[in-house]
Write a protein that binds this DNA or RNA. Structure first.
Length: 285
DNA sequence: GGTTGACCTGCGGAC
DNA sequence: GATTTCAGGTCAACA
């Protein structure tokens, strides 16, 4: 068992980050959060707002630190980002409430499948879909007495086929997930290579995939492909925009998204995530 | 080009 | 308790 402490020197709130609908395969046991990073099962404990404890069987030292830093984007200067997006009282209040909430940098393939599964669904169900996929086709990973699975490769999902995916209760999304696997396998599109393209170019490529529209593409771009200006507009963000910024109810996705990018610039994705969290939790409380 | 309904499933909230 | 609604959308068909 390898254990290290990471001093982020800036706020990082593991709970808020994992509970903000970016990541669907993690669980909390006692004070420890278990999640899979690059095919390694890792556990994390919050020590203070700027310090975390991390454990792993398969990564150690600098490798472990780098993997976790990378995943939670601890290289982002979050204080600078706060300053840059804090244009009004709504954002200010959201930042105050959820200080330390990070955008993650997760594996693009798993992220793509997650958000294809998110269509007309809800968080508990998306989690169950992703957990079932991993348990069915992934490789088992261990950490002390706990276990989890790596997420299956495009090849593994493609081999499973649409019918088996339906049996895992993906519903109409089964066809889309199978199509995405095929696209990544045979479409000569290495998802990671999209990081090098512009926001517009990479978005255009992603939406070639059946089952990937603007919303899903923006989620994948923001949470896995380095496009921090991407602004996924879902029901919650739309409600936030209409309620707090007097955006007209009948604006198109494109119009809302562009409005936001125009207002918040290169870190619009962060602004979006804070508004999303604020609006979503304001209702449930 | 914008609008509308279908799509799987499960689970809180309304009858 | 049985029934309906609505979920972090996308696509195809239509006017």
């Amino acid at each position: 068992m390898n254990s290290i402490k990471i001093a982020a020197r800036q706020p990082i709130d593991i709970e808020q980050t994992l509970q903000s609908g970016q990541v669907f395969r993690w669980n909390k046991i006692g004070e420890w959060y278990y999640l899979v990073i690059n095919h390694n099962l890792v556990s994390i404990k919050q020590e203070s707002l700027e310090d975390i404890l991390v454990r792993s069987e398969t990564l150690s030292g600098l490798d472990l630190e780098t993997a976790v830093n990378d995943y939670f984007r601890l290289d982002d200067d979050i204080e600078y980002i706060y300053k840059s997006i804090c244009t009004d009282k709504h954002i200010r209040s959201a930042i105050q409430s959820y200080r330390g909430l990070r955008i993650v940098r997760q594996d693009p393939w798993e992220c793509l499948v997650s958000f294809i599964c998110s269509a007309n669904s809800n968080i508990p169900r998306i989690s169950s879909n992703m957990t079932n996929l991993a348990a069915a086709y992934g490789n088992k990973l261990h950490l002390d007495e706990h276990s989890n699975y790596s997420f299956p490769s495009p090849h593994q999902i493609f081999q499973a086929g649409e019918q088996q995916l339906r049996e895992l209760k993906l519903g109409f999304r089964a066809r889309y997930v199978a199509a995405a696997a095929k696209f990544v396998l045979y479409g000569e599109c290495d998802l990671d290579s999209l990081k090098k393209l512009s926001y517009e170019e990479s978005k255009q490529t992603l939406t070639l995939i059946s089952g990937v529209g603007q919303k899903v593409a923006d989620c994948v771009l923001l949470f896995s492909l380095e496009k921090l200006q991407a602004c996924p507009v879902d029901r919650w963000v739309r409600r936030a925009m209409e309620g707090w910024y007097s955006i007209e109810p009948n604006l198109s996705y494109e119009e809302i998204s562009s409005w936001a990018i125009n207002r918040w610039g290169p870190f619009t994705g962060y602004a979006q995530q804070y508004l999303f969290q604020q609006k979503r939790l304001e209702v449930s409380n």
